[in-house]
Design a protein around this nucleic acid. Structure first.
Lengths: 352, 352
DNA sequence: CAGCACCTTGTAAGCGTTTACATTGAGGAG
DNA sequence: CTCCTCAATGTAAACGCTTACAAGGTGCTG
């Protein structure tokens, strides 16, 4: 182990000067700094993060808490954040927060969740926490507050904390309005099931946006046109099949709450012999890698940039720059591709 | 901050005893242990990881190095590993290792890569490293060796290091043999481009397995039947379209090197008006979440279990149990679904 | 030329644990 | 009863760095 003492000896200065030098503090003469750097390089010296953390109270590590490791969206966000943080010299430690489904308190997921708040995060391994899409109960919120760490939420409106998020109502409103402007009136909505997704207010919010756009257009919203599924291709595929097979409704457009769901909808339509967009327009939300491939019209929310942005925010807060905005709305944009077009003349899409 | 001293005071013992107690060392009387635990709980004491690391040299943190954050496969592996490690009390820190494409040395990716080896990993933040699918050059290998940390590779055969991996030749051989056994003789192969994927020996290995199976069946392999693309749905989609449009070849089956590629192949076939499996059998490798949805016959390599397994290995090595196997072959299994069936009578699939 | 301000550097006191070693006391063997 | 062993605990020295504070110089001002 090459310690700071060795570097100090080689450079002929004290360890304090080495520390200051390497930390880029101003009060070191250029000549000394150069000598120190040369010595450090020669010895291949790198600070020990444990010692540094213990002495300074800073870890140069950011915790990234997310509800799922196998969702495309979260990974895109993580990617953006990781890159920015790494470039700033921060490591990223991953914490998986299983949904607390509230049903079964003794269930392992709940125990894991409690453990995260009671032990893991309290080990002081992180300077700051980024929490994606999570809704906390009061006890958990309190636990985080006690940590006294910088905490910023992305997506889920973490109460009383800096957070970034889409204006989900506006997003859904805009998407629906796009379909309305194409002449669609029977617009279905595929979204997540609010019951199951306790950690996740988004489905309800998006649905509200969808309904308000309809209302504004003077269209009464039909509960039969709203279907729920989990946020997967397969889930939406099933939901869409059922929707399209239902003789009581004849949607000419589907607004899905995520791109993966929208892809499921497209595949379902195809398998029922419907053409997209001739028989059915489909749009999603996200800006998924595959959106282009499927020609999917979508509301792009630039997930990778979201990650970057949240990282920036954390970095500037750590740098002591007072960040005022407690809630920041993220940008989004409608990207028009080939999965939406003007409404076909009214007919039952199942029997062309 | 509630320190160990406070706990010691409250329990009426020395800090040494508290430390021993909480670490579960044997030489503490049950009565004392109980008192210490009660005190710790009352004060909500949790050890400071920095102090503990500095004193003990152990970090309780594992580094997970991977070439990509947006590949389904890596995330599945990560998920399995993260869960197992978290349950063992370890945190997981993510390191992104951009491919060193060798072309442009000054390119930022290369700089980032160098930095990872020269600085980041040397900060001693991890007790062990798990490296997924990466090929190192000599300098990098040396850098890792110098770390003196436990290192295990998954996938990419990290030279001279414990590693887990599929027998890619056997996998491809078995897949191809499956198609042969269904009567196919014109079997195409969609795989990664070995040139571009410098960090990735797998495409070549799988291709070898594919060819050896053909050879064993007395079939001469036709270079026109082998197409390359990046490992994405979209890439394979294009490659498959070109393959199927090529008048010189008439494949009745496609073996794709990954499930995502296989899905691309299925979608391409559909878009050309071919039915899967009637006109074209398709199979992949991985065990993708979506394989079931697409009825994809595949060789499941249980990525999540791979993550668990690699985590287990690391944990037992850290526990000091001498692990002997330097290379461990991972299990896999053919899962037959509806995307493969017996070969159709010979004809050009493009003009039925 | 004294006095002052400021820049650079060194000194040394932590930071909160772990752990080698010393100490104490109890129980068992002889 | 003495001596030895061993279990349980305490003492105190690291662990490798950061940083408040002190000290020494330099150059300027008046």
């Amino acid at each position: 182990m090459t310690t700071i003492q060795r570097v100090a000896d080689l450079a002929g200065v004290s360890t304090a000067t080495v520390s200051r030098s390497l930390a880029g503090k101003s009060s070191v003469s250029p000549a000394t700094k150069e000598r120190v750097e040369a010595a450090a390089k020669e010895l291949g010296y790198v600070v020990s993060s444990a010692a540094s953390s213990l002495a300074s109270g800073r870890t140069r590590n950011i915790g990234f808490i997310l509800p799922d490791l196998d969702s495309w969206f979260f990974m895109a966000v993580l990617k953006g954040a990781q890159r920015m943080l790494a470039d700033a010299g921060y490591d990223v430690t991953l914490y998986h927060l299983p949904a607390a489904n509230g049903l079964d308190v003794d269930e392992p997921g709940t125990a894991r969740r409690a453990r995260l708040f009671d032990e893991i995060l309290r080990r002081q391994r992180c300077d700051a926490l980024i929490a994606v899409n999570l809704e906390l109960d009061e006890r958990e919120r309190e636990a985080l507050r006690e940590l006294g760490r910088c905490l910023v939420g992305l997506g889920g409106p973490v109460h009383g904390v800096h957070s970034l998020g889409l204006d989900d109502t506006a997003v859904a409103y805009d998407a629906t309005t796009h379909l309305l402007s194409l002449g669609h009136t029977a617009i279905a909505h595929i979204t997540g099931d609010a019951e199951f997704e306790r950690d996740f207010a988004m489905p309800a919010t998006r649905r509200a946006g969808y309904e308000s756009a309809l209302a504004e257009a003077g269209i009464e919203s039909d509960p039969l046109l709203v279907r729920t599924a989990d946020f997967t291709i397969a889930g939406a595929y099933e939901a869409t099949k059922q929707l399209l097979a239902d003789p009581h409704v004849h949607p000419t457009a589907v607004f899905a709450a995520s791109d993966e769901m929208a892809i499921g909808a497209i595949l379902a339509a195809r398998d029922l012999g419907l053409s997209v967009p001739e028989d059915l327009s489909v749009m999603g939300v996200d800006g998924h890698d595959l959106a282009d491939f499927f020609g999917l019209t979508t509301i792009d929310q630039y997930p990778e940039q979201q990650g970057q942005r949240v990282a920036e925010l954390v970095l500037s807060e750590l740098a002591g720059e007072g960040v005022e905005a407690v809630v920041e709305r993220l940008p989004y944009a409608l990207v028009q591709r080939s999965s939406t077009s003007i409404a076909p003349p009214l007919h039952s899409p199942i029997t062309p």
